[in-house]
Computed example of a mutant assay.
Amino acid sequence: MQLLKDIGIIGGGQMAEAIIKGLLDKNIFTPEKILVSEPFLERRQYLDDFYKISLTDNNPEVVNNRNLIILAIKPQVMKEVLEEIKPFITENHLILTIAAGLPISFYENILPYKTRLIRIMPNSCALVHKSISAIAKGTFATDEDLKIAETLFSTIGETVIVDESLIDAVTALSGSGPAYVALFIEALIDAGVRAGLPRPLSEKLALQTIIGTVELMTKAKKDPYQLKSMVTSPGGTTISALNELYEKGFSGIIISAVYKAYLRSKELSEFLK
């Protein structure tokens, strides 16, 4: 993969740091091959101290010195940054963006015609390299470009290739998903405390139960119905609890919540264009 000789990242926040760490841990790049533009001196000093990468506060410098670029900045400042780097983008550049809410057409309308662009939607689990990143190809990106994006983002977790029309749904499910899971775990812990468990013990039980259940689904290939059947005996505690969840509309609430997030993602995509 010709472009994988060095990389530039515009933005040095937490998600950028997760990517940097993944690239270094997987030996995709050495520190001197990574050039990051970050406006805040304190943040640049932090990244230098921990990762020994090349740093600047000048966005065009990154584009002038690297052909493979990741845009890791907030969507609210994206237009300003794109206008700044536009004069320096050439046909040799591949632009990857992880900004939420901005469709590929937004970038293609600003950057030079035929700019190769790929949109990625990771999630916050990237911070521990357990992200699931959805990757969508722009109009002029190639299959080879997709492979490059997969290689880069597999360093922070799993990847899936999707059509861009699915990105809002991806955002609603996996992008926002860590918050739903955190809320559920918090409720489990509180439930254990209500039943008389000390909070540290309740937390340990809840977390390990979540981890073990995910392992059963991913490694033992158990689907949700099979898992429920394994622990649900006639007239037992589990069926009593499940009946309460069904009566309170638990599944419907989850479906409705994710769909609300999907609709909001579509609204924000239109607003941010």
Score class of each variant (00 low, 15 high):
132 I>Y: 10
160 V>H: 02
240 S>Y: 10
162 V>F: 00
85 I>Y: 01
212 G>A: 13
242 L>P: 11
248 K>H: 10
214 V>E: 05
61 E>N: 08
245 L>A: 08
20 I>T: 14
46 Y>N: 04
164 E>V: 12
54 S>Y: 07
42 E>D: 14
219 K>Q: 09
77 V>Q: 10
130 K>Q: 15
233 S>P: 06
211 I>E: 13
59 N>L: 06
60 P>T: 05
157 G>S: 12
72 A>H: 09
265 S>M: 12
25 D>E: 15
260 K>S: 15
90 T>E: 03
166 L>P: 00
181 V>D: 01
111 L>W: 04
192 G>I: 02
197 L>F: 13
195 A>D: 08
18 A>H: 10
252 G>T: 12
68 L>K: 00
258 V>N: 05
91 E>Q: 12
166 L>D: 06
68 L>T: 00
176 S>E: 09
254 I>M: 15
211 I>N: 07
20 I>K: 11
258 V>K: 08
160 V>I: 15
235 G>M: 08
23 L>V: 02
28 I>A: 08
135 I>Q: 03
232 T>L: 09
134 A>D: 02
110 I>L: 05
126 A>S: 13
240 S>V: 07
108 E>R: 08
142 T>K: 13
250 F>A: 07
112 P>G: 11
21 K>P: 11
150 E>P: 06
92 N>P: 01
155 T>P: 10
21 K>G: 06
49 D>A: 15
104 I>W: 01
71 L>E: 03
13 G>W: 13
267 E>L: 02
195 A>G: 07
36 V>K: 11
194 R>Q: 15
30 T>N: 11
64 N>L: 14
83 E>H: 14
10 I>F: 09
237 T>K: 08
63 V>Y: 05
105 S>D: 05
194 R>Y: 15
141 A>I: 11
193 V>S: 03
119 R>P: 03
100 A>D: 06
62 V>G: 12
239 I>C: 10
156 I>D: 11
66 R>L: 03
64 N>Y: 04
54 S>N: 14
193 V>G: 03
140 F>K: 08
186 E>S: 02
209 T>H: 14
75 P>H: 15
47 L>E: 09
76 Q>D: 14
23 L>N: 04
134 A>W: 07
192 G>Y: 00
60 P>S: 05
43 R>L: 11
228 K>T: 11
202 S>V: 03
139 T>A: 05
81 V>W: 07
248 K>G: 03
231 V>F: 08
93 H>D: 02
121 M>H: 03
105 S>E: 09
154 S>L: 12
3 L>D: 00
66 R>A: 04
180 Y>E: 09
273 K>L: 12
145 D>R: 04
163 D>F: 14
